[in-house]
Amino acid sequence: MDLDAGVSTNVETTGDSGPKDEQAAGIEVEYRPNRHSCGVDNSPSVIELRSVTGRQVGVLRADQPHDFESCRAAAGTGFGPVSPGNGRWTDRGLVEGAALCSVTDKGAVAMAVLEKVGENESAPTVTGKLVVWSKD
Rank of each mutant, 00 (worst) to 15 (best):
V82L: 06
A108V: 07
V59Q: 02
S70Y: 02
L100D: 10
V95I: 15
A62I: 04
A75R: 08
N86I: 00
R55H: 03
A110R: 12
S70D: 02
V82N: 07
K106L: 08
V82E: 06
G54N: 01
H66M: 01
R92W: 00
G78L: 03
G54E: 00
R55C: 00
C71V: 07
G76M: 08
S102H: 02
G93K: 05
P65H: 10
H66Q: 10
S70R: 11
G76T: 03
C101I: 10
E69P: 15
N86F: 09
S83I: 06
Q56D: 12
G87P: 01
M111V: 03
D67Y: 09
D91M: 05
F79H: 07
A99I: 08
H66L: 01
G87E: 00
E69H: 11
V82I: 14
K106I: 00
D67I: 02
S83G: 04
D67V: 05
D105Y: 14
N86Y: 09
G85T: 09
T77H: 08
F79R: 13
V109M: 07
Q56T: 08
L60C: 14
S83V: 15
V95W: 02
P65K: 12
L100Q: 13
M111H: 09
A110W: 06
V82D: 05
G107H: 03
Q64R: 15
V109N: 07
T90A: 07
V95G: 00
S70G: 15
D67W: 08
L100F: 14
E69T: 13
G80I: 06
V59R: 00
K106R: 12
V109A: 07
G80E: 03
G58S: 08
A99W: 06
V57F: 11
R61K: 09
A75S: 15
R88W: 02
S70C: 05
G78V: 01
S102K: 09
E69N: 12
G58Y: 02
Q64F: 08
A99Q: 07
V82H: 09
G76D: 09
G93P: 07
L60V: 14
C101L: 11
S70L: 04
T53Q: 15
